[in-house]
Design a protein around this nucleic acid. Structure first.
Length: 492
RNA sequence: AGGGAAGUAGCGCAGGCCGGUAGCGCAUCUGGUUUGGGACCAGGGGGUCGCAGGUUCGAAUCCUGUCUUCCCUACCA
């Protein structure tokens, strides 16, 4: 049992906070609602970002950067979108401070430096981007525009949670413009699959691809596609969204083009994004009471090596062996650290690196080296085994892959075991309270019913899965006819 | 935003009711012994007690305000 981490069974929320703080992913800051992402956590984000960035490039996208500030008049142009975000926007009203005449050494906002037009700190960039696209698009030859940006955004939240909900967070937002509706829809779905591919194959987190109900849809979108993941407490976490925006933004910003036949029409749009929130999902889905468990493909460190020795002579002998092994591992592209700090003993190091979720630990004992072996410990199962120094790098390489797959399958088994079909209201309520997870149930398709269910149980429709089997049934609440089951859950 | 709790050394906490100038454990530094699952001994350093006012001869302690964090509720395209 870890000395520093609250057990899941004792306090799930505190467990999550402990993992992040003690695992050194992030720290609290002096700014309300904002956190500091520490080097170890940022290393994780960088790895995620690099993989995603390559996936975006491979699907024909390019990166660009748009302003942090959006003039209020632009922001309000697409009404539904503006309305959706209005109550969580930070607004810049002044551009200058001055020394307080009544209190030397203090600064006050200079009342004479009021902006003529307030600037909204972007909660998302559709407005400024579509205002720009208007100037870039005249002809079908200018389309498609396939741009992504890596940026920070601000959404003023009342309640914050590290990584899951903070006032400022990092993300990427793709914004594309197309000549036809079909092409835009295809783009929306394509990026949803890119996200699912990334989250499943790199983060080892199984997701369900689906479409949001009207209540959960992005403001300003025609359709919102999403990937939903299940956390260890059975709650759902939206891991990524991809929106088909129709012509809503094109109309709001008057973005039109001439097609081959000289027809003049509005362009079709998409936007899609994932954020540092994914780190929260990763932490909550895989970790245990000893600390983080990071999937090898994106772990900042994949292998840590701990020496055990008596005296300088043994240390020198170990150093020599480790040096060779580190070179072999690095030659295979494996991220490895030799922890030979002499101010901590082995047991302390073991606990420390387990807390930080490093997938594989190698223990180099003086005794072992004489026998030509090394101890390999894997974080995901806590198993330890001895291995010959010969062929070690190849074994580690395979082991990292095995851990990656094992983590995915473990998470997938858990998720699949916690999706339950429910057909009556009583059973629905009981299941939500007693067996947290996703519930597949019939729904009559109306926003009113969804709202009522949310009111009564706090559960929302997470998504209507893609390729959902069609099956006649009766709505769980109203008894009205339904043609398919949808997924309900309480969500983060 | 409402309710509750908290903020004292890097971390975790005591002291506070009853005002008198701050202490414990861990960490850190020095020396030594150690090293196969969070070592031990000895010595040392480090804090305007979240911040700002007020009461007082004197405030970590009492009063007012404010900021930050955590928990519950509400909100959350």
């Amino acid at each position: 049992m870890s000395k520093e981490i609250t057990a899941r069974a004792v306090d799930y929320s505190q467990w999550y906070n402990d993992l992040i703080i003690k695992g050194e992913l992030a720290d609290y800051s002096a700014v309300r609602g904002c956190m500091v992402i520490k080097p170890y956590g940022f290393g994780l984000w960088e790895n995620m970002r690099d993989v995603l960035d390559k996936m975006f490039k491979d699907t024909g996208h390019v990166n660009a950067y748009f302003p942090l500030f959006v003039p209020k008049s632009l922001f309000e142009a697409e009404e539904k979108n503006a309305e959706g975000f209005a109550k969580e926007c930070a607004v810049v009203t002044h551009y200058r401070l001055k020394t307080d005449p009544d209190n030397k050494g203090k600064l006050i906002v200079d009342p004479e430096a009021k902006l003529e037009e307030e600037l909204v700190v972007r909660p998302t960039s559709e407005a400024i981007i579509w205002n720009t696209y208007k100037n870039w698009i005249q002809s079908y030859r200018d389309l498609p525009i396939l741009i992504n940006q890596w940026a920070n955004v601000v959404r003023w939240e009342m309640r914050t949670r590290l990584f899951l909900r903070t006032a400022e967070f990092l993300w990427q937002e793709g914004h594309t413009a197309h000549a036809t509706e079909q092409e835009a829809v295809e783009e929306t779905v394509k990026m949803l699959h890119v996200y699912a591919d990334f989250v499943e194959n790199y983060m080892a987190l199984p997701v369900i691809k689906g479409v949001k109900s009207a209540n959960e849809r992005f403001a300003g979108a025609v359709d919102t596609y999403c990937i939903e993941a299940m956390m260890q407490d059975g709650k759902a976490l939206q891991a990524g969204t991809s929106h088909f925006l129709g012509q809503n933004f094109a109309k709001a910003f008057d973005v039109r083009f001439s097609d081959k036949d000289n027809n003049y029409d509005y362009v079709w749009a998409t936007s899609w994004g994932v954020s540092t929130r994914l780190i929260g999902a990763l932490v909550m889905a895989h970790s245990d009471d000893e600390g983080l468990i990071l999937p090898p493909r994106i772990a900042p460190l994949q292998v840590v090596i701990v020496p055990i020795y008596k005296g300088e002579e043994q240390k020198a002998m170990i150093d020599e062996k480790v040096d060779t092994v580190v070179k072999e591992l690095k030659a295979k592209g494996i991220r490895v650290k030799y922890d030979d700090a002499d101010n901590a003993r082995p047991g302390w190091k073991f606990a420390e690196w387990e807390k930080k979720g490093v997938p594989v630990r190698l223990t180099f004992g003086a005794r072992d080296i004489v026998n030509g072996i090394v101890e390999i410990a894997r974080r995901d199962t806590s198993e330890k085994q001895n291995h010959n120094l010969e062929g070690l790098a190849g074994t580690i390489e395979a082991l990292l892959e095995d851990i990656q797959h094992n983590m995915f399958h473990k998470a997938k088994t858990f998720r699949d075991d916690n999706i339950r079909k429910v057909d009556t209201w009583d059973e629905f309520v009981k299941t939500l309270d007693e067996q947290p997870g996703f519930i597949a149930a019939h729904w009559d398709g109306t926003p009113e019913t969804e709202e009522k269910i949310k009111e009564l149980t706090k559960a929302t429709i997470r998504c209507i899965p893609l390729d959902n089997p069609q099956e006649a049934g009766k709505c769980i609440l109203t008894g009205n006819p339904s043609k398919e089951r949808v997924l309900f859950a309480r969500a983060y």
